[in-house]
Design a protein around this nucleic acid. Sequence first.
DNA 1: CCTAAAATAT
DNA 2: GATATTTTAG
Length: 568
Amino acid sequence: MSFSCDDLAVWKDFPKGLRILLCDEDRESAADTKMKLEAMDYTVYSYCREEDALEAVLTKAENYHIAILELTAINGHCSFKFLEMVKDIPTIVISKVHCLNTVMKCIALGAVEFLQKPLSEEKLRNIWQHVVHKAFNAGGNAISTSLKPIKETVASVFQIQSDFNELNFEIPSQFFDMEQEHEELNAKEKENDKFSAPSTPQLIKGERLNEDENFQDRTDCSEKDCAIEDKELSELPKCIVSETKFVDNTYNNITVAVNSDEILPLILEKAAAEESKADDCSSGHEVSLHFLSTDNVEKEDSDLENLTKKNPSNLNGIRGSRRRMKIDWTPELHRKFVKATEQLGIDQAIPSKILELMNVEGLTRHNVASHLQKFRMHKRHILPKEEDRRWQLHTDSLQKGYLQKPIMAFPTYNSNYIIPPSQAYPIWPHQTYHLPNVQMWRHSGLPTWHPPPENWQTKVYPEIHADAWGCPVLPHYNYSYGQYYIPPQGPPVRNNGQDVTGDRGRMLKSSYDHFTAEEVIDKVVKEVMRKPWLPLPLGLKPPSTEKILSELHGKGIHTIPPLHRRHS
DNA sequence: CCTAAAATAT
DNA sequence: GATATTTTAG
């Protein structure tokens, strides 16, 4: 049970009765702290050993609203086990240690605050705010009601960057992936300004603003004090360190594009959903990024509680994850990508340029590079080398031009044909379109293979795209499976609604006119190979035994084990 | 900065 | 288990 806004709403004399887990090895200070807290009508559960505290939390996390953990350097080393493991309870670290590195690490590990011992009543008084803060962030009412569109969000992230320079506070570069993280960190600063987080005079943020030295130079802490050395800090796994940036990253209902599998993606996705709604209305069709998250927007269960249940892998909380938000390569986005790629031509189509041309907010070069990689692989798969070669032998010069470029040919843009926006893309199946449907053949309007029309290159069949990534040719399939017949045009063959193709046929339904010929073939081949026992798709004639045998013979296979002959 | 390959997430 | 995307490494 995570603490939510609802809980807060019914809590009469909040924060009285706040349940605090206190873990301090120093009995004296523990007692002192406990006393102070109890004076404020907090309920304190005190532990001396980290292990005990940990066990208590892991057993019954809902028992505690907030944790106060003392960090002691033993032989110059601190244990961060608690911070590492406990993710769903706001944890305040208290310590005598005060070197920035240690503080940093704690924050990186998700601590909501770092308090210098000895603790004063003053420092402890406002710790309840962390609980509230968490409740707000738990996806309750406040958040769901007024989400900003993601575009704005992202935009704000970028604008903020300029503020950053004024801070004079540099995060060691090893902390961040240089592309965007700075912006994200900054967003945090800005957000903080808007809606101040619980803080005490010694909050890190304050230090950042005032400190003139940069982080690396900040080694003024004595060796004793500084439990963690720079080296160790720098060796912190990025995944952990990068979490720094989303500590307290959301305030109020404003969202910042940062990493978190839990809350933020949900928010972002909602925002994205809202935006796409808006897009539907306006025909302006700006491409925007859609971030994927683990959880489904449609479901309105945005409670942290629910979220955390769904993701038991990490010990939950707002600070669970590290991965960058996934980008949903929607058909629209992909279309932009392809367009940019086309425009650049094969030589120039590199991530940075594509990115530039695409001009999509928030998209990174990495994203593009990755997509490009996939795109190329896709091509490669569709036009395997060997087939490629064969193909060349059997085609006229017109086509050679395309195919000689081995794998990743970027055909020239075909100006003779204007692709209707509605049909031209997506070139790939989108996640939501799901699987190959063999019956695509019926609708695809693919030309009968063998005699390609002379104007092959310029003629575009209704549902074939002048795909940027290769000629819409179907070489190898023809080769290995023999001829197939597709009604050259006209309405799809329905066969009186009867499903001649059995199981394969059932997969019909998606809109295959979104696919290129290649893709259709690719899918069919895959499907057929996956379930060879099913009948071939309508119009696809199985190769004759003779053909197969001679083919195998040509490949040096002269004997066929009985099993392989069962169909003959 | 680019690409390929490995790691992860879905 | 396959696929999509991110991260890492060269």
